[in-house]
Design a protein around this nucleic acid. Structure first.
Lengths: 336, 336
DNA sequence: TATAATAATGTGACCGGTAACATATCCTTA
DNA sequence: TAAGGATATGTTACCGGTCACATTATTATA
């Protein structure tokens, strides 16, 4: 590595001006006589000069670097957040450091390193659930949460409108004439599980359908837990005719369990998922699901973070993004 | 942001030593009298001092930052590469900038920005195929390719042993008594498609099965292309009894087409995929596939990159990782 | 005890930009 | 033509570390 070690002073020497004038040209600020500017630009060309970001950071006290911490990088939802954020960041002249922090300890270490070294100007935190270690981020740090809302007025966040999402999913099933609607939730400790649950209840309520405890199964987002949920439901007499799974993986597990039990989806039982993960349309049957615009959420988060860095007195927004229902073939009219 | 603006000189003043002695302590190098070291460390504690990475980069000419450029961040395979690389990088004290560059132009711009600004010490390039713009990376830059091998002796790479993988997949089908084995390839311009194809041919050869042009369909990695491939195969008389799809998405598309055509997988026809993507085990039927250890590939790539940064005369390794066959239920014995 | 050798610490410059202020140049206007 | 104001450019210090070398304190050797 290395090379192109041309500095502002080399350019200045060649152009016969002071280094400060070169600085003025590369920041195309101030008034520089057009003729001088031209001379400097020629010198820059000739020497293939380009400014050293580190030196600039040093002098300006700004790094133009954001950091994104996520439980992992492979989950499709998280990866889309990051991709959206990265794109927006780059569009605005920032780079994005990414790191995965699967547990509280890694998270704390990472945040410490990032902040202590002053390598980054702001933090994007992806997490499905706000935990104590998240909130230990010092207050003076610009941070935006994606996926969960810490509900602290100095921390911005971008979340999905889970309540409405849960409402939409449930309402879709109700409109298909289902009344025995089971739900496979994520861990109930997680905010989004709770939100979706509230939406589910509200929709039942609005339709005058009584809520039944036995129709709720707490999963852990894994396909396996979806599978087990169905085993649980099928043991009951008067089983549900429709299932709302709070994510697609659990929906897929549920469908598999139904198939293994000889039930046909959607003929015997409808299933709606959540996330619209890749290939959701290629499952058998293609999955009806709720789409969250993860890409947009990432972009919005980056925007918000940059704005809070550049204009620190701007208020922190807590953005809530609306979901969208995608109807495919895993849900159908209840004909009994 | 900001805060904790303590510098090495503040610490020096408090400890009653010179700033250089503080520098010695924080780099725990040189001989510093234990008693002095203690005084300095106390001062560091008291002032909550921690070194400024930017200043350090400036002085040392090193940023301890790597960059990873990928066509996108959401593809599971790419994301695993990145996650593996990030972990290894962090373990060795580096941070990882990630960016997506879906096309040649973005790629070129990005590389320029990264290199010109001297923000990063090395490049991790994820790509399924080496294209001209990739090779325009200046020679003095440390770079490691993941997924494709530029075959230039100054660029390291980590790739899958595609030929062996293709061989394994095909041999698996042959052992199940299949002789009419079709293949859905990726774009044949891509190195990995070609490698897998060579393995396929070698396995047929070894078993004395003639190669038939009509059994090859060129897909584009999408599920849709897998679907179309099957439509093509089924039109032929004397259709294949087994299909090797060069990735799981195409395999899923193929299975769907087979189902739509009333064929049962694996009873009527066996399908083997490639990648072992998430939920491959939850498809119907659970997908037999070839696993590439993407996580390890990412780690190896980061290792290689760091070593080539720290010891520039080390030779560039072109690592080739072995695949693994995962047998599930989409393939079975051909009983006719 | 004088002197060399070694260990411990200090000094000042430097990395490559930017900021603040100083100076020089040019054009108006009285 | 001298003074005043704007415009253009230069000077110097500074950001916060590290490096090379100078200096001082300590110990070993003659």
């Amino acid at each position: 590595m290395s090379r192109s070690r041309m500095t502002i002073r080399d350019v200045a020497a060649l152009a016969g001006v002071s280094h400060q004038t070169v600085s003025r040209v590369i920041n195309n600020s101030e008034r520089v006589k057009p003729e001088t500017r031209q001379r400097v630009e020629n010198a820059i060309q000739e020497l293939k000069y380009s400014p050293n970001a580190v030196a600039r950071s040093m002098a300006r006290g700004r790094t133009y670097t954001l950091a994104c911490i996520s439980p992992n990088l492979t989950d499709f939802t998280y990866a889309s957040f990051i991709e959206g954020a990265e794109l927006e960041a780059r569009r605005q002249g920032y780079f994005l450091l990414t790191a995965s922090a699967p547990n509280a300890e890694t998270f704390a270490t990472l945040v410490n390193q990032l902040l202590a070294s002053r390598r980054t100007e702001g933090l994007l935190v992806i997490t499905p659930k706000v935990e104590p270690h998240h909130v230990r981020i010092p207050r003076y740090v610009s941070a935006v949460f994606i996926g969960a809302n810490p509900k602290l007025d100095w921390i911005a966040s971008v979340t999905l409108d889970d309540e409405n999402a849960g409402y939409m999913a449930t309402e879709h099933l109700i409109q298909l004439n289902h009344t025995h609607i089971a739900q496979i939730t994520g861990p109930i400790a997680e905010e989004s599980s709770q939100g979706r649950m509230r939406g589910y209840q509200a929709a039942l309520n609005a339709a005058g359908i009584p809520f039944q405890r036995r129709f709720i199964y707490e999963g852990d987002w894994s396909a396996t837990s979806g599978y087990m949920a169905v085993q649980d439901f099928l043991e009951q007499e008067n089983a549900p005719s429709a299932i709302f799974a709070q994510n697609d993986r659990m929906a897929v597990g549920a469908i598999r369990a139904l198939r293994d039990a000889g039930r046909h989806v959607p003929k015997n039982i409808s299933v709606i998922g959540f996330d619209d993960m890749p290939l959701a349309s290629y499952f058998d049957p293609p999955l009806t699901t709720i789409l969250q615009d993860t890409y947009r959420m990432g972009r919005e988060a980056a925007c918000q973070l940059i704005s809070s860095i550049e204009k620190p007195d701007n208020p922190c927004r807590q953005l809530c993004v609306e979901p969208k229902l995608i109807v495919r073939q895993s849900t159908t009219l209840n004909d009994q």
